[in-house]
């Protein structure tokens, strides 16, 4: 019994300690952002590894998700003779939910795990301590540019995901299943609002980019500097990012689309 309580208390203290370290880490990142803006070269390098390298994954997934939505939506909607509203269904589900969420999950798997492994290995091979020895702040030099790159890349990737998905839905809907092309676009334009749907979707994806880069960088920075520790940190990044993205998505959806 005592052992159980000790275990429970230890677990609670550890997780609160981690949350505290994570928050302090976030403040350090944010205060390091001014230095990042002064050295855009670092940011461009990170945009390459976070954004450009995720580009293919995101666009191909977007295409297939859109095509599946077109196919499934058509089967359901044609039962009610409402297949003309396919465009609304595909676009609304992509722009509001699937675009930001699925691209953020893919982003956490593709870029987040790479960030954790990179930072964790830097720590394990004492590159971060080496930088400190040379009076270079590793947070400003290494972490902040990666964080900002994640926050910039995420909305762009989510926008691409939705746009390609909508085109994929059109390919299936009007190309294969014979939904009228004009109705596909015009119903979509009539039903989707710029402020309510597009802007909120972009805000969501910025929030997801913020959270998943923060988790990925923190797990790497906080990893136990052994090969096992780094591999565990990478796993935790993917798991925690997925949880936070989905939980945050629920909260944001309730806040943004509550009054519709």
């Amino acid at each position: 019994m005592i052992e159980f309580l000790q275990h429970l208390g230890n677990g609670t203290l550890t997780s609160f300690g981690k949350l505290g370290r994570g928050s302090r880490f976030l403040i350090q990142i944010l205060s390091g952002l001014t230095d990042t803006l002064a050295r855009p070269r670092l940011l461009v390098n990170q945009l390459y590894s976070v954004g450009v390298l995720s580009f293919m994954l995101i666009s191909i997934s977007g295409l297939f998700v859109g095509m599946v939505l077109g196919l499934q939506g058509y089967y359901t909607l044609s039962d009610f003779g409402a297949e003309e509203t396919l465009g609304v269904m595909v676009a609304a589900s992509l722009v509001r939910e699937l675009g930001p969420v699925v691209s953020a999950l893919l982003f956490a798997g593709r870029a987040g795990s790479a960030l954790t492994a990179e930072i964790g290995l830097m720590k394990a091979t004492e590159q971060l301590s080496g930088m400190e020895m040379m009076a270079i702040d590793p947070i400003k030099r290494i972490i902040s540019p990666r964080f900002l790159a994640g926050c910039i890349a995420m909305p762009l990737l989510a926008g691409l995901f939705s746009a390609i998905g909508i085109i994929g839905g059109e390919l299936i809907g009007s190309g294969m299943l014979g939904v009228d092309d004009g109705a596909y676009w015009s119903q979509m334009q009539a039903k989707l609002d710029f402020q309510d749907d597009i802007i909120n979707g972009v805000l969501k994806s910025i929030a997801f980019g913020f959270v998943s880069s923060w988790i990925a960088l923190f797990e790497g920075y906080d990893a136990i500097p052994t090969s096992e520790g780094v591999s565990r940190a990478t796993t935790r990044t993917v798991v925690n990012s997925a949880f936070s993205i989905l939980g945050l998505d629920f909260i944001l959806t309730a806040l943004m689309f509550g009054d519709n």
Partner: peptide
């Protein structure tokens, strides 16, 4: 690398513009 990053940012912004102009009622 610069070119690819530029292309990526341009593609992302083009995607968002597409959403704004073609998909919504803007």
């Amino acid at each position: 690398q610069d070119t690819l990053v530029g292309l990526f940012v341009a593609a992302g912004i083009a995607g968002l513009f597409f959403l704004a102009l073609q998909v919504s009622n803007l």
